[in-house]
Write a protein that binds this DNA or RNA. Structure first.
Length: 610
RNA sequence: GCGCCGGUAGCUCAGUUGGACAGAGCAUCGGAUUUCUAAUCCGACGGUCGCAGGUUCGAGUCCUGCCCGGCGCGCCA
């Protein structure tokens, strides 16, 4: 099964070709329902290139166009738009082909995999070890995971690499500090916890900055580490293990899986990177540092801006290790596409690293290197996101707070118990079906739901925003039950699942007989939305834009709510005749499966009850 | 100083290689309720798309200049 958009595009392209017209068919979803479901904007451009008026060209294309199997006869409107209206018969036929439970491809709704699978590396999360993950790691982790899931769904072989900061001076500093001040800690490394490690780090850094002797001691420890001193390595490993344990506790809660491959992995590769650069004449010394100069990069004085790949003290820096990642990912992992999910502030750095990799010939034309940059997470007021004391906000505490707030939303029966809200409101509110569904829940079940809703809210809110912009982190908004939020969508999912239970049907083994009946406007609108899932994934993948997917899922949820609404919509469970009832239940099932699949591509779990 | 990224409704944000009268949510106001989970649905109100020029059949989108905000610009990552 392929997307309707692609199908129409191919048809228009064929018609254009038959007329000898060049150009993209420019088929898009219509901007307004009055203009149908899809429109082609190709006639205006084609007319300019080939002569004639746009409307004449559009009419000529219509003459060659065969879409009778899926659309009403298309018409030409305005300056030369071609408008397409899908027929209910086509909608019913297309959705009817979606595999039902147990059929091959059912879990992916019959959506085709790419014809050209490639190896894609996604570089995501990448926290520094010895410190707790903080709010700054949220976006890379969540966006990177989402992008990986989408590309994986398309059939690509995706490798998620967690480029953790597990090497460098901070570790020498930490070891030296503990040796000097708390040797007992080193005797019992099993008892080390991340909070201690971070506290020690802060103390060590402070000492490092004011005590020359300690600074020297730290640097000597770094050298010992680099030379592979067994005892120093043992301590370093313990630090890394504890840090990674902390990170993976968070990844597990966030439902993110990835491979740790820290900077230390590239220790042996970095000298080779340097050797190759020097051997091939791509790098030269400048002020004692080894540099690669690429065209188009300037310092503030207008001089050529170097990418420093070896510092004047002989040490490597992050440019070196990033180049090493490129070499490893292309030459060893076989990547044809490498996506670095890193804050937008580092754009220049990656532009330079990529340019250097091209110059060195490591990344040829067949390899794409992409920096998927994103903006900052700001506080609700728009200021930088800090604790009251001015420190960084721990990711774990952020997650815990969201979960706690989700729990209080659940307990108040859907009325947000925000500060200042009227606490009596919940008591006065009449009982609802949702209340009844929650009535028999244990505290444990409520906890589980709160965990899912709270974390879904954070992730969804992040992914819902355009990547390049900063956004304001606002728990009230992301946990709201109305609007484009995770709770709204999870609720829509839970509602559909409840319909199955109430109707006495197990959707997980639902293999309906007979075709879909699409007559009511709400049925047709829901069917159209369902059918747009495939093209939405295409677009989200092509542009690496998760918010394309969130916007779609919100639209689908909305269409479902209308479909199921007692005024605007249709009866389902008690619908007559039986064929109509089955058809509507099938639409419900397709909605739930589409939402579940779509949310899973965002890394969000769905709920049976809420 | 140079470069990059932003500026869209009171607020938070979408806006698909330029397409039809600029969209959604929140907030505000109004309507629907003996509930198939109303944690929902419908309606109203609300915009000089930062400003000024330009390109063209057509500009929130492209170009130029300016204003405001953020970030970056040789040995931290």
């Amino acid at each position: 099964m392929r997307s309707t958009l692609r199908e129409l595009s191919d048809r228009v392209a064929a018609a254009m070709a038959a007329l000898g017209l060049e150009g993209d068919p420019l088929v898009r979803p219509s901007t307004d329902p009055r203009f149908g479901d899809y429109q082609s904007n190709c006639a205006m451009g084609a007319a300019r290139r080939a002569g004639g008026t746009p409307r004449e060209v559009a009419e000529a294309i219509l003459g060659k166009l065969d879409v009778a199997d899926c659309c009403e006869p298309p018409d030409v409107a305005g300056p030369g738009f071609i408008n397409f209206r899908l027929t209910p018969a086509f909608l019913a036929r297309s959705l009817g082909r979606v595999p039902t439970a147990g059929e091959p491809g059912a879990e992916r709704l019959g959506i085709d995999r790419t014809d050209h699978p490639t190896v894609v590396v996604v570089d995501l999360s990448s926290p520094n070890l010895a410190k707790e993950m903080h709010v700054g790691h949220l976006r890379s982790t969540v966006i990177g995971d989402c992008v990986a899931r989408i590309l994986e769904f398309q059939g690509h072989h995706v490798i998620r690499e967690n480029h953790v900061g597990d090497w460098g001076t901070q570790f020498g500093m930490l070891v030296a500090y503990l040796r000097r001040t708390r040797p007992n800690v080193l005797d019992d490394l099993d008892r080390l916890v991340i909070a201690d490690l971070e506290a020690f780090y802060v103390e060590a850094k402070s000492l490092f900055d004011r005590d020359e002797a300690f600074k020297k001691q730290s640097q000597e420890t770094v050298v010992r580490l680099q030379r592979g001193d067994a005892e120093t390595l043992r301590i370093w490993r313990a630090f890394c293990n504890e840090s990674l344990r902390h990170c993976h506790a968070i990844y597990e809660r966030l439902n993110v899986s990835l491979i740790d491959r820290g900077e230390s992995f590239y220790n042996d590769l970095m000298p080779q990177v340097i050797d190759r650069l020097m051997r091939d004449g791509h790098a030269r010394e400048s002020d004692g540092a080894l540099c690669v100069f690429c065209d188009g990069f300037q310092t503030r004085e207008g001089a050529p801006l170097p990418l420093i790949v070896r510092k004047s003290d002989g040490g490597y820096n992050y440019a070196t290790s990033d180049l090493a990642t490129i070499v490893h990912r292309i030459e060893t992992l076989g990547a044809r596409r490498v996506i670095y999910v890193v804050g937008i502030a580092q754009k220049l750095h990656f532009d330079m690293v990529f340019a250097a990799a091209r110059k060195a010939g490591w990344a040829g034309e067949g390899v794409a290197l992409e920096h998927l940059g994103f903006g900052n997470v700001l506080s609700a007021s728009g200021a930088p996101f800090k604790t009251r004391e001015g420190g960084t906000v721990k990711l774990k505490s952020l997650m815990d707070e969201a979960v706690a707030r989700a729990r209080s939303v659940l307990e108040s029966g859907g009325v947000i118990a925000a500060a200042g809200a009227d606490e009596d409101a919940a008591a006065d509110r009449p009982a609802t079906g949702a209340d009844a569904a929650r009535a028999g829940m244990t505290s444990q079940e409520m906890d589980d739901i709160a965990e899912t809703v709270g974390l879904a809210a954070i992730k969804y809110f992040d992914l819902q925003h355009n990547l390049v912009k900063d956004y304001k982190f606002d728990l009230d908004t992301m946990l709201a039950l109305d609007g484009n939020t995770a709770p709204y969508m999870l609720y829509a999912c839970a509602r559909v699942r409840a319909i199955g239970r109430k109707a006495g049907i197990d959707f997980d083994s639902f293999c309906p007989e007979g075709g879909l009946v699409l007559e009511h406007p709400a049925e047709i609108a829901l069917a159209k939305s369902l059918l747009r899932f495939a093209e939405t994934i295409d677009q989200a993948a092509a542009d690496l834009r998760p918010n394309v997917l969130t916007d779609y899922l919100y639209d689908l949820s909305k269409q479902f709510s209308r479909f199921y609404d007692r005024k605007q919509g249709v009866r389902v469970i008690d619908a007559e005749p039986p064929g109509v009832r089955v058809s509507r239940l099938r639409l419900c099932d397709l909605t739930a499966r589409t939402l579940k699949l779509g949310l899973s591509l965002l890394g969000i779990r769905t709920l049976e009850r809420m």
